[in-house]
Simulated assay, not measured.
Amino acid sequence: MKNRAALIFGYNDYALEIAKNVTYEYENVYLYSLNSEQDILKNRSCFEVKSFDLSDKWDDLNENIDIQNSIAFCVLEDSAENIFLTISLRSSFVNLNIIALSNNKQTANKLQMAGANKVIPLVQTTAEMISEMLQKPIVKDVFHKILFESGALKIAQVKVNESNCYIGNVVSDIDWSKRYGIVVLAIVNEDMSSEFIYSSKVKHHIVSKDDMYIVVGYETDIKEFEKMTGSACD
């Protein structure tokens, strides 16, 4: 039986971040790696990784993937290879939804001409993320003080204990900045990797015992936050 899947072509940090964020939408997530990429991140992925070549005829996809209800991400770091990949996929799959990343406007135009349904410029993605953060008054205040005032702000890693009153709540439903005057930047995972607090994956995260948060704020505010969450790690 053919399955609905997210197909991510490219084995790099962008690919891994996309994979982690689409697992909520797609039960099957496959990373496709060019041989030249394989050794770079071989120990950093919990997803199935398949090798592919730009000359592939995509027979495996035809046999096993429900193309019409799947999505492909073209995130090869070489622009020419990314464009060629997009052309190849589009020529083989008229109904496949193709999302491509580009590093400049010229490449974005070429990817659209190559058949990508949507092109996301990397510069735009980063700018929109920063813009979203800076719309929050507490974040504006923190950045202003970091840039223009004395270094009174601190960064801390805080761990949640079993008595925390927010355990069981969704992270995005809690306005810690308003209540405690701190900004939560990221959540630290069990493997000590971190997830940006504004990513779609973290927004759905349920607060649980032993969660660790990276926060920034004044020392007194951080101490109050530590009392609420449990204990300071660092």
Rank of each mutant, 00 (worst) to 15 (best):
residue 43 N to D: 08
residue 43 N to R: 09
residue 43 N to I: 01
residue 44 R to K: 03
residue 45 S to I: 08
residue 46 C to Q: 00
residue 46 C to D: 02
residue 46 C to N: 06
residue 46 C to V: 08
residue 46 C to E: 06
residue 49 V to T: 10
residue 49 V to Y: 06
residue 50 K to R: 11
residue 50 K to P: 03
residue 50 K to Q: 15
residue 50 K to D: 11
residue 51 S to Q: 13
residue 51 S to T: 15
residue 51 S to D: 11
residue 53 D to K: 14
residue 54 L to M: 07
residue 55 S to R: 11
residue 55 S to E: 14
residue 57 K to I: 13
residue 57 K to Q: 10
residue 59 D to L: 05
residue 59 D to K: 15
residue 59 D to R: 11
residue 60 D to A: 06
residue 60 D to H: 09
residue 61 L to D: 13
residue 62 N to G: 06
residue 63 E to Y: 12
residue 63 E to T: 15
residue 64 N to G: 03
residue 64 N to A: 08
residue 66 D to M: 01
residue 66 D to S: 11
residue 68 Q to D: 06
residue 68 Q to C: 01
residue 68 Q to T: 07
residue 69 N to R: 04
residue 70 S to R: 11
residue 70 S to F: 04
residue 70 S to P: 01
residue 70 S to C: 05
residue 71 I to P: 05
residue 71 I to F: 01
residue 71 I to G: 03
residue 72 A to R: 07
residue 73 F to P: 00
residue 74 C to N: 01
residue 74 C to S: 03
residue 75 V to R: 02
residue 76 L to G: 05
residue 76 L to C: 06
residue 78 D to V: 06
residue 78 D to Q: 01
residue 78 D to A: 01
residue 79 S to C: 10
residue 80 A to V: 15
residue 81 E to T: 12
residue 81 E to G: 13
residue 81 E to V: 09
residue 81 E to Q: 15
residue 82 N to M: 03
residue 82 N to R: 06
residue 83 I to T: 13
residue 83 I to E: 06
residue 84 F to S: 09
residue 84 F to R: 15
residue 84 F to G: 12
residue 85 L to S: 08
residue 85 L to E: 15
residue 85 L to F: 06
residue 85 L to R: 02
residue 85 L to D: 15
residue 86 T to H: 01
residue 86 T to I: 00
residue 86 T to L: 04
residue 91 S to M: 12
residue 91 S to I: 03
residue 92 S to A: 14
residue 92 S to L: 00
residue 92 S to C: 14
residue 92 S to I: 10
residue 92 S to H: 07
residue 93 F to T: 14
residue 94 V to S: 14
residue 95 N to R: 12
residue 96 L to M: 13
residue 97 N to D: 12
residue 98 I to F: 02
residue 99 I to G: 02
residue 100 A to C: 03
residue 100 A to Y: 00
residue 100 A to I: 05
residue 102 S to R: 02
residue 102 S to K: 04
